[in-house]
Amino acid sequence: MNAEDWITHLDMAAHPEGGYYKQSFVSPEKISLAAHSAERNLYTSIYFLLRSQDISHFHRLKSDELWYFHAGHAVTVHILDAEGNYRAEKLGLDIAVGERPQVLVEKGSIFGSTVEAEDSFSLVGCMVSPGFDFADFELLLQAELLELYPNQGKIIKKLAYEKIPGTLSDR
């Protein structure tokens, strides 16, 4: 199957950070934490598809996000931690070249993703705990990130929006 087949069969929609998504699970259990403005589901999960011509732009969540590889080519998850240290995690199944089938993005980290293989895609699952809510989602601009982390200019210019497009919708 190609990317468009997955998008169609999973009834995916465009995501504001880039790529395509479809919510797959929502925990019926709720949790309240000081870091969140209101009660959240214990966890939520989505399918997320990124094509090689797409970029998942730099964003930040108030919850941990665990990524699982499903299909296609490896995806690189680019992460800036709270101190501004950069690391690239390869999510895929080729363990011999350093890919891993699961990658954790810690809450508060700034992250985005890319598919490096030309004319390809990656289908992953993303589980967020406490559950995802757009109230806890922040897209970040190049100017603010360059001011905070001037040593990370190359990756910031590649993955951060200069101007945030459109409006956000629930996932």
Rank of each mutant, 00 (worst) to 15 (best):
N2S: 04
N2K: 09
N2P: 00
A3M: 09
A3K: 01
W6R: 14
W6P: 02
I7D: 13
T8G: 07
L10A: 15
H15G: 05
P16L: 14
P16R: 13
E17D: 08
G18V: 11
G18C: 13
Y20C: 04
Q23S: 13
Q23D: 08
S24Q: 14
F25L: 14
V26Q: 13
V26M: 12
S27F: 05
P28M: 11
E29A: 15
S32Y: 09
L33M: 14
L33Y: 06
H36K: 10
A38Y: 06
E39S: 15
E39P: 02
E39D: 14
R40F: 11
Y43K: 05
T44Q: 04
S45A: 15
I46L: 11
I46V: 14
Y47G: 01
F48I: 06
L50Y: 09
R51K: 15
R51C: 14
S52T: 03
I55D: 03
S56T: 06
S56C: 15
S63W: 04
S63L: 03
D64Y: 01
L66E: 10
L66G: 07
Y68Q: 03
A71R: 03
A74M: 05
V75A: 15
H78Q: 10
L80M: 02
D81G: 03
G84Y: 05
G84R: 04
G84W: 08
N85Q: 12
Y86G: 01
R87W: 00
R87C: 07
L91T: 00
L93M: 12
I95S: 08
A96R: 07
E99A: 03
P101N: 08
P101C: 06
V103C: 10
V103M: 04
L104E: 05
V105H: 02
E106S: 12
G108Q: 05
S109C: 14
I110R: 00
F111Q: 13
F111C: 07
S113E: 01
T114Y: 00
E116V: 07
E116R: 05
A117G: 00
E118M: 01
D119I: 00
D119Q: 13
L123T: 10
G125A: 14
M127S: 11
V128H: 02
P130T: 09
G131S: 03
G131C: 03
F132L: 03
D133C: 11
F134G: 02
F134K: 09
F137M: 06
F137D: 09
F137I: 11
L139Q: 08
L139I: 14
L139F: 07
L140Y: 03
L140W: 06
L141R: 15
L141F: 01
E144H: 03
L145M: 05
L146W: 05
E147P: 00
L148N: 08
Y149W: 15
N151T: 09
N151M: 06
Q152W: 09
I155F: 13
I156K: 07
I156V: 13
K158D: 14
L159C: 11
L159Q: 09
A160G: 11
E162Q: 04
E162T: 05
E162Y: 00
I164D: 12
I164S: 05
I164A: 11
P165H: 14
G166F: 10
L168P: 00
L168V: 15
L168Y: 11
